[in-house]
């Protein structure tokens, strides 16, 4: 069964989610990747605080179009690899009261601890599904650091509708990525002794 969620999300709501749950996410979320995460940990800027509170970070560097009226549209916007944010993620979640992180590939133990401690989950989007996901972006609300960081690295504040996701790390310490890693390692060991 698919669960519908809309930001802002309460801690109680997020803690109900379990690994394997399929989610359709709506509401305001914020894209942030490498430079943004470095900045959030090193300088803790306040400009992004109101958009992140009880909201969701999306690891994404989109292709965008500037419309004639000066507004922006998302053209292609799939997830980027999340593990690069592993050094920063847990601190960002707790500092900015974030309820979820969307990306691909999963994250490590440090992030898992952060999800548990501060009440958040890791949502997995389908990597490479750039056009399909961009079609769920209804509006670009605001953009920060566009000039300095460039299009892929800027903070894009967007409104999404029915963004398809799977919970692969929950707020109780479970991780689908850990499970698949353990099983595939076992399978590889059997192949390697042949």
């Amino acid at each position: 069964m698919t669960i519908k969620l809309k930001t802002p999300i309460s801690e109680e709501e997020i803690r109900k989610l379990k690994v394997g749950d399929e989610v359709l996410l709506s509401g305001i979320i914020v894209t942030a990747r490498d430079q943004a995460h470095k900045l959030m940990v090193e300088e803790k800027p306040d400009f992004i605080r109101e958009y992140l509170k009880e909201s969701v970070i999306y690891h994404c560097g989109p292709v965008v179009r500037k419309n004639e009226d000066g507004s922006w549209s998302f053209v292609s916007a799939g997830p980027t690899t999340s593990i690069r944010e592993e050094p920063y993620q847990s601190e960002v979640i707790c500092e900015y009261n974030v309820r979820g992180v969307i990306g691909k590939g999963g994250m490590g133990d440090k992030t898992s601890e952060g999800l548990k401690k501060c009440g958040a989950v890791y949502f997995h989007a389908v990597g490479g599904a750039g056009t399909l996901i961009a079609n769920t972006v209804k509006k670009v609300v605001k953009v920060f650091k566009l000039e300095e960081f460039g299009t892929p690295e800027a903070f894009w504040v967007i409104e999404v509708e029915d963004f398809p996701l799977v919970v692969t790390m929950d707020s109780h310490g479970s991780s689908l990525h850990k499970e698949v890693l353990e099983n595939s390692t076992k399978a590889a060991q059997e192949l390697l002794v042949k």
Binding site: S76, G78, T80, A129, G130, L132
Partner: peptide, 25 residues
């Protein structure tokens, strides 16, 4: 199964709309 379904739908949409299959071009 759900992932492959999304992937195939995305491939079709990208071709139809002439927009990048993946945002990382």
């Amino acid at each position: 199964k759900a992932v492959f379904k999304t992937i195939l739908k995305n491939v079709e949409l990208a071709r139809k709309q002439s927009t990048p299959i993946c945002q990382d071009t």
